[in-house]
Simulated scan of single mutants.
Amino acid sequence: MSRVQGKWNGWSITILILLVIGVLFSITTNPLGFILPIVILGAIFLLYKYPPSFLQGYRRTGQSHTRVKQGRSSSAAKPKTGRPRSKTVPFRVIEGGKDDNDMPKYH
């Protein structure tokens, strides 16, 4: 007989009921301690979603005034074709000084 596991088993229902009882108890004993964080988080969300006009104006002026900084003069900006960009250095092998005879076979 195979038993199909659903979303809600006995432990899930028990934890959910205890959670609801705890939330209701905290609301009845200290309503300000429960409502105040919800109001603050709601205000932060609304300010993020719908910013005030003075913040919108600051954001738009910052985006419209983009400045381009010219780093080099026009004669120095031309690439030099006669010289390669980097030197090609061949790799060389450095012989190790570790002696394998000192090491035991099994360690």
Score class of each variant (00 low, 15 high):
residue 49 K to T: 12
residue 50 Y to E: 14
residue 23 V to F: 08
residue 28 T to M: 09
residue 36 L to G: 04
residue 75 S to V: 07
residue 73 S to L: 06
residue 71 G to N: 13
residue 10 G to R: 10
residue 54 F to S: 07
residue 46 L to E: 11
residue 33 G to K: 02
residue 13 I to G: 01
residue 11 W to F: 13
residue 73 S to Y: 04
residue 23 V to W: 10
residue 23 V to C: 09
residue 26 S to C: 10
residue 60 R to W: 14
residue 71 G to H: 10
residue 56 Q to Y: 07
residue 14 T to C: 09
residue 57 G to F: 02
residue 24 L to P: 03
residue 43 A to N: 07
residue 44 I to S: 03
residue 23 V to E: 11
residue 16 L to V: 07
residue 18 L to N: 09
residue 18 L to P: 00
residue 48 Y to N: 11
residue 20 V to F: 08
residue 67 R to Y: 05
residue 73 S to R: 10
residue 28 T to F: 15
residue 51 P to D: 01
residue 29 T to M: 08
residue 15 I to D: 14
residue 57 G to E: 14
residue 50 Y to G: 02
residue 25 F to E: 06
residue 52 P to G: 00
residue 52 P to M: 00
residue 56 Q to W: 08
residue 55 L to W: 05
residue 27 I to G: 01
residue 68 V to C: 05
residue 59 R to K: 08
residue 51 P to I: 00
residue 49 K to A: 11
residue 17 I to C: 03
residue 73 S to E: 06
residue 20 V to W: 04
residue 8 W to L: 15
residue 59 R to L: 03
residue 48 Y to M: 06
residue 48 Y to L: 07
residue 12 S to P: 00
residue 40 I to C: 02
residue 12 S to W: 06
residue 36 L to Q: 15
residue 70 Q to D: 12
residue 14 T to I: 05
residue 41 L to K: 08
residue 54 F to L: 05
residue 24 L to H: 06
residue 39 V to K: 07
residue 75 S to I: 07
residue 54 F to R: 04
residue 62 G to H: 02
